[in-house]
C-alpha cells in the first residue's frame, strides 16, 4: 500500500514526540496541530486534484492572501484603517472571498486550457501578480477589527472541535470518495494518466481540466477565509510560502507530479506528517532558524522512506 506508506513514519514521529515533551500527546496539543494544519490541508486537496489531472497550480497560495484581503478591504468602512469605505457585511465578505477564488481559478483555467499556455509559468505569473495585488490593496497594511461573522469559520467550535477541522475533515472525506467513486473523479485520473487516450475514450478533457482549476481556486479561497478567521486579521504576506509545504505534503503523500497517480488519503497522511513534525520541532525547542532546515531534511528522509516502503519506481 503505497498510499499508507507514511503511516509508519507518522508513528515514529508520535513516539519521538512523546519523549520530547509530555504535553505532545495531549488532546489539546493534537487538536491544535490539526487546526493549524487545516488551511494547508485544504490547499493540499486542491493541489492534489490538479496534480492528478496532470497539471500544476502555483498560484493557490496567493489566492489565500488576495481573496480575504480584498474582502476585508471592502468590509472595513474606516479608510484610516486601510479600508475601502464601502463597508459590506461579514457574510457578504465571505461570498466575495469565495467568488474571487472561483474567478481566479476560472482565469487560470482559461489561460491553461483554452489558450494552451504552459501551466507552470502561467500560474507562476498569476502568483506574482496576485502577491503584488495583495500588497497593493492596502499599501502593505494589515487589516484587523473584522466582523465576527467574517471570522466565524476560523474561530468557532462545533461539539468542542474547531469548525476548520470539521471542514477539512469533511472535504478530505468528500474528495477522497469523489475521486474514488464518482465517474468524474475517475476521469480526472484518466486525463492525468493519458490525456490523449482520455480524449479518444470520449472524456471531455478540456471541460474537466477547467473544472479542476476552478475547484482549486475555490478551495484556496476557502482556506483563506479559515486562516483569516484563525488569526483574526489579514496580513499582506498571508499564504506566503505555503505552496512549498503544499507540494511537500502532496508528494510525500504519494501524489505523482507526473499525473494520474496517488490518492487523497495519501495526501492526508502527508499533511498530518508535516503538521506533527512542525509541532515536535517546536516543542523540542529547536531554534526557529533551524526549523525550516530540519523540515527540509525530514521531508527528504520521508521521501526516501516512501520510495523504499512503496512500490518500486516506474522505469521504462
Amino acid at each position: 500500500m503505497r498510499d499508507l506508506a507514511l503511516v509508519p513514519v507518522i508513528i515514529v514521529v508520535l513516539i519521538v514526540g512523546s519523549f520530547v515533551s509530555p504535553g505532545f500527546l495531549m488532546a489539546d496539543n493534537l487538536m491544535n496541530v490539526m487546526q493549524q494544519s487545516s488551511e494547508l490541508s485544504i490547499l493540499v486537496i486542491a493541489q492534489s486534484l490538479i496534480l492528478i489531472c496532470g497539471k500544476i497550480d502555483l498560484s493557490l497560495e496567493s489566492i489565500v492572501g488576495v481573496a480575504p484581503m480584498f474582502a476585508a478591504w471592502l468590509i472595513i468602512s474606516d479608510t484610516m484603517m486601510g479600508g475601502s469605505g464601502v463597508g459590506i457585511s461579514g457574510i457578504a465578505g465571505i461570498a466575495v472571498v469565495l467568488g474571487l477564488g472561483i474567478l481566479i481559478g476560472t482565469v487560470n483555467a482559461l489561460l491553461v486550457v483554452k489558450l494552451r499556455l504552459n501551466e507552470f509559468i502561467t500560474t507562476l505569473a498569476m502568483l506574482i501578480l496576485l502577491r503584488g495585488t495583495t500588497l497593493g490593496i492596502t499599501n502593505g497594511q494589515t487589516l484587523f477589527d473584522l466582523p465576527d461573522s467574517f471570522l466565524y469559520l476560523g474561530t468557532a467550535k462545533w461539539l468542542g472541535v474547531p469548525v476548520s477541522i470539521w471542514i477539512a475533515g469533511f472535504l478530505f472525506l468528500f474528495a477522497g470518495l469523489f475521486m474514488r467513486y464518482h465517474r468524474i473523479g475517475r476521469a480526472i485520473y484518466a486525463i492525468g494518466g493519458n490525456a490523449e487516450a482520455a480524449r479518444v475514450a470520449g472524456i471531455p478533457v478540456d471541460r474537466i481540466t477547467m473544472g479542476v482549476y476552478i475547484a482549486g481556486g475555490f478551495l484556496a479561497s476557502l482556506a483563506g477565509v479559515m486562516l483569516t478567521g484563525r488569526i483574526a486579521s489579514v496580513v499582506s504576506s498571508q499564504g506566503q510560502n505555503m505552496i512549498f509545504y503544499v507540494f511537500a505534503a502532496s508528494v510525500i503523500g504519494g501524489i505523482s507530479l507526473n499525473g494520474g497517480q496517488g490518492r487523497i488519503v495519501g495526501a492526508l497522511t502527508g499533511v498530518i506528517l508535516l503538521g506533527l513534525l512542525q509541532n515536535v520541532l517546536t516543542l523540542s525547542q529547536v531554534a526557529a532558524f533551524w526549523i525550516d532546515a530540519a523540515y527540509g531534511a525530514i521531508i527528504l528522509i520521508a521521501l526516501v522512506i516512501t520510495r523504499l516502503t512503496g512500490e518500486a519506481p516506474r522505469s521504462k
Binding site: 465517474r183 475517475r186 476521469a187
Partner: peptide, 27 residues
Amino acid sequence: RGLFPVMAVADNLTITVLDRLGSLGLV
C-alpha cells in the same frame, strides 16, 4: 491512444461506461 497505464484493469475496462454503473455519477 488507449491505455491508462497506471490505472487498474477494471478502470481501463469500464472508463467509458461509468455512467451505467450507478446513479448520480457515482460508480
